[in-house]
Amino acid sequence: MSRNIPMDPELAHRLTRRGMLGVAAGATAAALLGAAATPAMATTPADAAAARRSRPVLPPGRLGIQLYSLRDKVASLGFAPVFAELEKYGYDEVEFAGYTQGTGGPISLAQLKRLARDHGLKPIGSHVGYSSDDPNAYTFAQNLTQVLDDAEALGLPHIGTASGPGRYGNTVDAWKRAAEEFNTYGAAAKARGMKFYQHNHSDEFGFATDDPKVRLYDVLLAETDPDLVFLEMDVFWAYAGQFRFSKRPDGTPAPFEPLDYVLDQPHRYPLFHVKDGVSDPSNQFGYRMVDVGDGDIDYQRFISAVSRLRGERPAHHWQAEHDNPTESFTFARRSSAYLHALRETC
């Protein structure tokens, strides 16, 4: 469904800052999408190249938002006004970070599912805690059946956690133990027709305390069943991990490229968090988080590389996020406009 995606007045400038020259200041993201929907017939190699350049980087129908970014609005206004805004901004999907709406009052899962559908939004996933000391906590470890019941009621194709796998510590064996639990959750989710996933922060890219040659993220990948456990790469935190852990504890180089993990195993990464950062070596993470399009993470390159994957063309979904936006509706609007306006350049 074509949507009227509002253009941020600063969008042309933001695109130019990233090297996206050729987007006129008066163009709108909706117009760009419309142009891509009906390309001219390519009759020469030059025409074919121009047609490729006109393609949007973002796959159609795959832009979502992690509702944690809008938790202030969900708590103060409720889901209905938030979903109405997201519909206006051109979002296709939402990822939950809880199913309550503060002063908006009680809402059932059936009502929440219907509300999202009424605003053209597909619930794509949800974050739930991994474990807790409370035996009755709403987590995978303590309450797996209820977590999956709720995800099934919402029609979620993915259900996951943003908790790190360090429940038992950060040794190799501790992460192997956590990986086995993730395999259990993945098998239970698969039996319900869903995919279980884990969302990274930067610590996952650190090294095992008992073997500093081993990167913990590699343990997670190796010890989880690729048919049962999937990954949601938070691109900001992956690059923060690259900054923090490019050397082993003894100082020897250990560089890695987050995009390579995806290109090596694309089917393991159905979901991504699109959050941006300005490079800042004085910051412990190497970046200061900003609205999508205002930072230095090259999403034109990253999303293009993933979207060009061939073979079975795995479905990838892109969730805009900011942990603490200055104004959450403004963040959502600007992020959508920026991502919809990114174009192929080669």
Rank of each mutant, 00 (worst) to 15 (best):
Y299H: 08
P212E: 08
F256C: 14
L86H: 01
L77E: 13
A97E: 00
G293V: 08
S131N: 05
A240E: 11
H127K: 01
G155Q: 00
A191R: 10
L115V: 00
Q300Y: 05
T43R: 13
D294L: 14
P258G: 00
L263Y: 05
V229S: 03
R177M: 14
G295M: 08
P157T: 01
G186H: 10
H199F: 11
T103N: 13
T100I: 12
T28D: 08
L86P: 02
R3A: 09
G160R: 02
V278M: 12
S279R: 12
L33R: 05
N283T: 06
N324F: 15
T43C: 11
D8S: 09
N200T: 14
R71D: 05
R313A: 12
Y138V: 05
L342M: 15
G26H: 03
F83P: 02
N324G: 11
T330A: 11
I159E: 10
S132A: 06
Y91P: 01
F236M: 08
Y138L: 01
G295E: 02
P39H: 02
Q242V: 13
L259E: 07
A187W: 07
M233Q: 15
T184C: 09
P9A: 15
G22W: 12
S246W: 03
Y168P: 02
F140P: 00
E312D: 15
G277W: 02
R334F: 00
D227C: 01
Y185Q: 03
E180R: 13
T252A: 15
P325R: 06
A46D: 06
T103W: 02
L220A: 10
I297H: 04
D47S: 12
A153F: 00
P9S: 12
S246I: 11
G98E: 00
G251P: 13
L216V: 14
I303G: 08
S131T: 07
A48W: 10
F302H: 05
A151T: 06
H273A: 11
T16A: 12
V147P: 01
E85L: 05
E87M: 08
L156N: 02
D323R: 03
M233N: 09
T145W: 00
R14A: 06
F207L: 09
A305K: 12
P270F: 07
A179G: 01
A50I: 11
V147W: 04
A208N: 11
T16D: 10
R333L: 03
Y269G: 04
T345H: 15
F205K: 10
H316Q: 05
A341C: 15
A29I: 06
D264H: 09
S202R: 09
R334K: 07
G293Q: 07
R288M: 13
E223M: 09
G78H: 06
A137R: 06
Q284W: 06
D133G: 13
I5V: 15
S335V: 08
E223R: 11
Y197I: 10
Y299V: 00
Y130N: 04
H158S: 06
F83Q: 06
E204D: 13
A51W: 12
S2G: 09
L154D: 04
A187Q: 11
G166H: 13
P325Y: 07
Y138A: 01
